[in-house]
Simulated assay, not measured.
Amino acid sequence: MNYWPLLGIALVVLGFALKLNPMLVVTVAAIATGLLAGMDVFEVISTFGKAFNDNRIIAIVWIVLPVIGLLERFGLQQQAASLIQRLRNATVGRLLVLYLLYRQLTAAIGLHSTAGHPQTVRPLVAPMALAAAEKEHGELDAKLTEKVKAYSAATDNVGLFFGEDIFFAIGSIVLIQQTLVTYGYNLTPLDLAVWAIPTAACAFFVHGARLLLFDRWLRRTKH
Rank of each mutant, 00 (worst) to 15 (best):
R220K: 12
W217S: 11
I170E: 06
L65C: 02
A133S: 07
P198Y: 08
P5N: 01
V64N: 06
K50H: 12
V97Y: 06
R56E: 10
G171K: 12
R103A: 15
L87G: 00
V64K: 11
L87W: 12
A17Q: 10
A10S: 11
D165Y: 13
D54Y: 03
P198T: 08
D54E: 12
I84Y: 03
N186Q: 13
L83W: 09
H117G: 07
F167V: 11
R220F: 02
E164T: 13
L160M: 08
G163R: 07
N89W: 15
R94A: 03
L96A: 03
K143E: 14
G8D: 11
F74I: 09
G171V: 10
L71P: 09
L175A: 12
L212S: 04
L175P: 00
Q79G: 12
A209R: 07
N53T: 09
T199G: 14
I57N: 03
F162G: 06
V41N: 01
G171E: 12
K50V: 14
K149L: 03
I57E: 06
R73I: 00
A29E: 06
R103N: 13
F48V: 13
I109Q: 04
I173G: 07
K50E: 15
L140R: 05
Q177K: 14
A81T: 07
Y102Q: 09
G69L: 05
I68H: 04
T114H: 11
T114P: 00
T114M: 08
W4S: 13
G208T: 04
A90P: 04
V125N: 07
I57M: 07
I9G: 12
A129V: 05
G69K: 04
A200E: 11
A153Y: 06
Q119N: 08
K19Y: 09
T182W: 01
P123M: 10
A203K: 01
I68F: 04
P22N: 15
T114I: 10
R216A: 14
F204A: 04
L6H: 09
W62C: 14
A196G: 15
L130F: 05
W62Y: 14
E43C: 03
L7F: 15
T120Q: 08
G15P: 09
S82Q: 02
L14H: 06
